[in-house]
Structures are given as C-alpha cells and as structure tokens.
C-alpha cells in the first residue's frame, strides 16, 4: 500500500491505486482439477490466522490469576465477543461463540495486517467477504428452519399486515432477507477497498507534489497519516460490524424477530 510508491515511484499520478489489490500466485498448486494456488492472498490469510492463534496461545499461556498486558487483550476480546452474543442473541447464542470469535478475530487481523505497507488486504476482495457472508447467510437460514421448522417462513410475514397485501409484502421481505449476504459483504469489502485506494491516491499526491520540493509534499503526507489512523479505526469497526450483524442474524434465526 502506501509506501509501495517507492516501487513505482517517480510516476506521480501514474501510480495505479488498484495495483495493490492484485492477486499474485506464489506457489501454483492443484487439488484434482481445482486451482488451489498459494497466492499473496493465501499468505496473508495464513499470517492473519497465525497472528490470532499466536496471540491467543501466548496470551493465555501463563494462565496468570492477575493478567499481564497480552493476557488482558486475550481476555478482553473473549469477554467482548461473549457479551456481544449475550446482548444480541441471549444465552442461546453462546453455542456460536467460537464461530463469531473466529470470524471477528480473523477479519480484524486481515484488516489490520492490510494496514502494513507492502502488505495485502484479504478483505478487500469481494469474493472473500462474500464467501464469509454467504456462509453465515446459509448457516443462519438452516438454523432458522432447524429451530422453527416450516414456521420459520412466518419470518417473512410481518405482523399486522392485511391479507390482500401479503402477495406484495412477502416477496419484499424475502428479497430483503436475500440482500443480507450482499450488503454484509459489500460493506466490508467496499470499506477496505475504498480506504486503501484513497490512501494510495494520496501517496501518489505525496510523490507528485514532493517532486516540486519538500513543502508541497508535506501536506498530502499529513493527510495520509491522519487517514491511516482513520483506516485503522475503520478496520476495527468493520470487523465489529460484521460480527454484530452476524449476531443479529443469529438472533433472528433463533428468536424470529
């Protein structure tokens, strides 16, 4: 990302802000006839998972009664997700605690790793965010039918709507339900992509204006520092939003409201 401009430096506005999103195959691989090449995206997924596992295991390793800094982080994130589930789904939701925790930490780690210069942001690809969102959507729908049987269909029939309006209202509700994976995935993907693109464009400004002297280059650089801070915030917030919407969908499936 930002400092990648060194690579293409001197080109000024010619830097392609989309270049950072390109998938590069590192090791070509094949499972049967499925292309399973290890790409830069795969690498950063592995790094994100490794970071989460490393943090969790070293954090809890000492099992101290009075937690140190790392253990506090681990415990706080545990309590954070547990409370999120309790507040939004109730105790029935705690069954899905490991999944929501994995989801939140994985997305958060991917988002934050993407902030490091030269790195790759896994979540800036719609196919990844859509796969996550679609998995949640399918899982939640199956859960809804498993818990309520055919009665889950009533979820699409709002209370207090006159019968003659149902042919109109039910399709609207169904479509509204079907948009969930789209809006969930697009939100994460677009936020990550937009943030990184904007940073890239500003980096281009730094180079372009910097070639006229140091002073003109400082202004966009200051902007970039501010934006980077904002992007870190957005990275955390989007992981949070993804997790909390998952909780809300779980609640809908379990309690139908």
């Amino acid at each position: 990302m930002a400092t990648e401009n060194a690579e293409h430096g001197g080109g000024g506005f010619a830097i392609d802000p989309m270049h950072q999103f390109e998938i590069k195959t590192l090791f070509p691989m094949q499972f049967g006839n499925i292309d399973a090449s290890f790409t830069n995206s795969s690498l950063f997924m592995v790094l994100a998972a490794a970071a989460v596992i490393g943090l969790m295991l070293t954090g809890i390793n000492r099992r101290a009664m009075v937690p140190g800094r790392l253990q506090s982080i681990v415990e706080l994130s545990y309590e954070f997700i547990a409370n999120m589930l309790r507040d939004n789904v109730g105790t029935a939701g705690l069954r899905f605690f490991p999944f929501v925790f994995t989801l939140f930490t994985f997305i958060l780690a991917c988002n934050l790793l993407g902030m490091i210069p030269y790195s790759f942001t896994v979540t800036s690809h719609i196919i990844v965010t859509f796969a996550l969102a679609f998995f949640i959507f399918i899982g939640v729908t199956i859960l809804g039918f498993a818990v309520h049987g055919v009665g889950f269909m009533k979820f699409f029939v709002p209370h207090g709507v006159p019968v003659y309006l149902l042919p109109l209202v039910v399709p609207i509700e169904v479509v509204s339900y079907l948009t969930r994976p789209i809006s969930l995935s697009v939100r994460l993907f677009a936020n990550m992509m937009a943030g990184h693109t904007v940073l890239k464009v500003f980096a281009g400004f730094v180079i372009a204006l910097g070639s006229f002297g140091i002073a003109p280059g400082i202004v966009p650089l200051v902007f970039m520092v501010g934006l980077t801070g904002l992007e870190v915030l957005v990275a955390a917030l989007q992981a949070y939003v993804f997790a909390i919407l998952t909780c809300i969908y779980l609640n809908d499936a379990l309690h139908m409201h």
């Binding site: 499972f31 292309d35 399973a36 995206s41 998972a49 596992i53 925790f101």
Partner: peptide
C-alpha cells in the same frame, strides 16, 4: 477459486484451533 479454497482451509483451521484449544483455555 484459489481464494475460496484457502479461505476455507485457513478459516476452518483457525476455527478448530480457537474452538478446541485457545478459547477453552481462556
């Protein structure tokens, strides 16, 4: 396809490690 394959592998592995090892410890 490669992204989906690796997402499945990595996410699944992360889920297993967290659900079976890390979170019970916490």
């Amino acid at each position: 396809v490669p992204q989906l394959v690796w997402l499945t592998i990595v996410f699944g592995f992360l889920y297993l490690v967290l659900a079976r090892v890390a979170l019970p410890r916490v």
